[in-house]
Design a protein around this nucleic acid. Structure first.
Lengths: 193, 193, 193, 193
DNA sequence: CATGAATGAGACTTCATTCAT
DNA sequence: TATGAATGAAGTCTCATTCAT
């Protein structure tokens, strides 16, 4: 693999275009042109368009997982952690909407791209999911969150954040995203408690 | 097969295949073959593949909106209405997973499919959104839900249900969906109150 | 499969171009243009370029096998049968050089096209090979040919005819092919006896 | 690695890969990697892939011509020479099947590879052909072979050997090639006499 | 209205060849 | 001379859409 900088530039380009136009409406040629390289060049870095989409997901997932890991390792109540996470998440959405939109739009809606041979593409996000699980578990242990089904708790966090992200991307929100931090944290904590 | 019947059969076929394989991985020929008609004849009913996708989403949206309208018109507390809605929704997911998966998939990726037409896929769901708004408003008026930003409340309902639907589609849930009715209603009501 | 006539026209076009320019130097577009249809059209008849090459081999092989079968079924000495076969073969080469050249050039030299999953592409010619075997066996039984290894006898017939065909295709022969009938039959019979 | 040595290593690598996968299914990169050099550096030795193919065929042809020349210069009957040639040829096929397979493959498909250059692949083999001609002429002069058309005699030798080589390459022969030496020589001599 | 063969535009991908280092 | 990243041209194949029957 030639060059790490270009590798990342390709991912960034793909991320931006996939999230904007969708995976199937973005061509390799566009991704290449977008960063001033030739289409064939991309194949020195990624063996296929699908693999590029996967690399992009891994890229975003790692960032999200890392952010949450840092928060998980802090000394703070679980409610505070939720707030911190919502905060860092919304900031991230503001700064890199294309990454989050990619995560929610392309990833969730194009299973056929990410899964292979019975293996759910879901596993690509495992790192992030593990951190969410830890966040929930810790809260249950400390008594701040009620014990209950993991998937419902997971849905309460990720679903609410995902939905508000979607609305933001659709430009239906009148204000800046960070305005909603406290209110969203509140709703999530209540849903979990 | 009368006109209207074939029209609906085409939508049902499209719905099933789009949700299973994705819009771009489903061909008009497959949709046609699936119900034993010719590819060309689909164009007697829908002017394009995109228009078929739109008709399908309208079809599903109307069903969801109608279900919620019936519940909204009942004499019941808002909490009970939430439970009723979750219940009817989960039943619907169990019976017609393809419709709900398509519903979420299309909305998440509407840009990909509908972007060129000016009208966002989001707008197509206005009926349904209006009913959700009414559900929330009524709860706020009755004092059961806290007053607050509509979009956050909307996200709390639709986001949580969407997330659990996604997990169900990914086959990561160990049990039947309806098991989660009470727990989910609980989480949603807490998030709103 | 739409239409038998066009199916055969495609095979004929492929045969002519493959034998003239080689498999890899012939494009689907050329094959199509050659008979005035669109490139995509070919894929209604053959799922891939490789499959078209295979169909062409089967086509030629069947003709060769049929010719030899007719001769094998005649009442004649084996030597006479050899002569008849050489005669009919040379006539065929004169009339349809592209078919025979295809057989010897494309088929023999592009194994990767015709074989699949351990299965030797050789089997595509089985019909013809069987007839050659019968021709030899009958001669051995009648005492005209010496008993011996089948593959050597096979090589004596097919190798000699193949080589003269090749030379003919290379335009190094000064005279018409049929001039050589008696001489070739002679050589083959001696090689076998 | 000195100049000449690398030159030959490239030819050997090309020979092995061309014969195994075919000219068009072998990439310059593979040829290079196979001997641990870079793709670009092949162009320091050969101006194009085609020229490399030509150099390879010349290389093999010279070996074959030389072997036959040595035999031609011996004091022996023509029949003995045929046997010697068959023997040395089969040994060569056993030791370097890739060279012989390439030899036949290239000549059969020379149009595909060399056509644009005006000079047919056939001409490249002139050295070898001359030696075959001498072998035949000597036999005719000594009365061992019957006088007749050169091309038929040539086909009898090269066609039979080519066919058995092909069968060997197809792995349809049950035994080692050298087993067939006497039998093959026999057939060839009879065909010529 | 139905059919389905035909079209043609366009996508992904490969690879010989070049050239700056 | 060596390297190998980059190019760009080309080829296979797909499929929404059309249209003659």
């Amino acid at each position: 693999m030639p060059n790490k900088e270009k590798h990342n530039a390709i991912i960034a380009s793909a991320l931006a275009l996939f999230s904007k136009y969708g995976f199937h409406n973005t061509t390799i040629a566009q991704i290449a042109k977008n960063i001033g390289i030739s289409a064939g060049s991309i194949y020195s870095y990624f063996p296929s368009k699908n693999s590029l989409a996967k690399a992009a997901i891994t890229f975003v997932t790692r960032i999200l997982a890392k952010q949450l890991r840092v928060i998980n390792e802090k000394e703070a109540s679980s409610q505070e952690k939720i707030t911190l996470f919502v905060q860092s998440y919304l900031t991230f959405v503001s700064k890199h909407p294309e990454m989050i939109e990619y995560f929610f739009k392309v990833y969730l809606t194009n299973k056929e791209i990410f899964s292979e041979e019975g293996k759910s593409g879901f596993e690509l996000a495992q790192d992030f999911i593990n951190e969410v699980e830890k966040l929930i578990d810790d809260g249950v242990k400390s008594g701040e969150f009620r014990a209950g089904n993991f998937y419902i708790a997971f849905s309460s966090i990720v679903g609410i954040l995902g939905a508000i992200t979607f609305l933001s991307g659709e430009k239906v929100l009148d204000k800046n995203l960070d305005i909603y931090t406290q209110d969203l944290s509140n709703s999530i904590c209540r849903a979990l408690s």
